[in-house]
Amino acid sequence: MKALGKVFKYGDNVDTDVIIPARYLNSSDPAELATHCMEDIDKDFAKNVQKGDIIVATKNFGCGSSREHAPISIKASGVSCVIAETFARIFYRNAINIGLPIIECKEAAENIDAGDSVEIDFDSGIIYNKTKGESYQGQAFPEFMQKIIKAEGLMNYINSKNA
């Protein structure tokens, strides 16, 4: 599995309140949530994002509330992967559970700039920056999580386990 897209770049501690502000949480419809994705940090994001694009951020991406609406809105906006130096733990779980690919990679987080064109190979964890001609080795998922991802989410994994 591969992803290829243009990068939207953010800094440390991007919290779930700016990813999807609480004023929109009276909806749980992914398409509607996507129209407000990143609104309080980057009001043009929803307008500019294209299918396959990639979000790159530095430390503690997704900190704050447990709202699964945050990874759901990112996924529904067409983003193919989020790369960060570190993720907040609830966001990390949620992303895996709903099937939004995420990769931890300090080098990529430091070196990739907004607008770069980046290709990710999920099997090897290699992140290739086409704009700069550099590649970075991202962290592969532990085996247990790979099983959840392969099953396309936690619910399918549970069904397959109890089948």
Binding site: S65, S66, R67, I90, N94, N97
Partner: peptide, 24 residues
Amino acid sequence: DSHTCTYGALGAFSTGVGSTDMGA
């Protein structure tokens, strides 16, 4: 809900998760 960690005050293990984990 992320503030589920509150019950640690009672000597319990409690932690916040997302909706899918909760549902499971």
